[in-house]
Amino acid sequence: MSDFFTVSVLVSVFASGIRLATPYLLASLGETIGQRSGVLNLGVDGIMLLAAFGAYYTALKTDNLWLAVLVALLVGLMVGVVYGLITVSLHAAQGISGIGIFLFGLGFSDLLFQVWVGTPLPVPHKLPKLSIPGLGSIPNIGEALFQHNLMTYGAFMLVPAVMFLLQKTTFGMNVRAVGENPQAADSLGVSVGRTRFMAILLGSSAAGLAGAALVLQGGIFQANLTNGLGFIAIAIVYFGAWRPLGAMAGSLLYGMVNATVVQLKVQGTIPRSASDLASMAPAVITILALVFLAGRVKAPAALTKPFARH
């Protein structure tokens, strides 16, 4: 265990935890916006898979990573349009609609992969690391915090941006209003449908970016690449009490615990006999945190409730 508390190991764990947290953060930030407007999107994982494949295929064929990110964003946006039509325009139940989107994403991304790619091939280039001038060269701290790829920096910069959006803009105020009391917002002239639709589009686009981050960090796609990551992102939204900073804390917790468990396994501190138990640690800690927070935080009052003007 003493080997763990060395500077080099701690730096490695922090850097690993931040990398692992990036897709969770992007997806949970987007889902936070959606849920604050009263829309639960259980299809995050499916959107991520579709966007991840879009980014992967684009990167594989063009070797243009930023075009790949753009494609992922657009894929997320398109699926968001479909989900918005289903849940906002058609007033369908959000839970089952989200599951439908997930299943569609799971199956269709695999189908496209099988038809267009087949055997897994790595993309020519992954997202490159960018050392932030002046900060990246700080001993240890620089390596842990300031030597990541642009999508990681972007994800963390989105946290204050989403905070500003939700707290300081008219749109954000409308989002919160339609998530708490859509009837009252409607009576004050706020278009509930349009606001929720926009929130869904933002959330789906962020899920698309999460898919891009996942696939372009790893450099390869395979069936069910997300491995349930999108559902964990939804749990992180609850963990974070529907706040961007909370989503960041939850994503970092999940990433850091995972990175710590990996490191302890590599060093042999966690014996192989306890390996499977240790692998459950991130999920167990998240569940415990959710239990601890239950009753202490309040979900948006109109979450999962379709709105129809009577």
């Binding site: 080099s8 790893g218 590599v266 390996s275």
Partner: peptide, 25 residues
Amino acid sequence: VSVVYTGSFGDVALAAETATAHIAN
């Protein structure tokens, strides 16, 4: 030899981080 079972057949990102940790060690 350092053996790590990630606990998943499908978690590509975790497998990548495990490889990174092996190399760092």
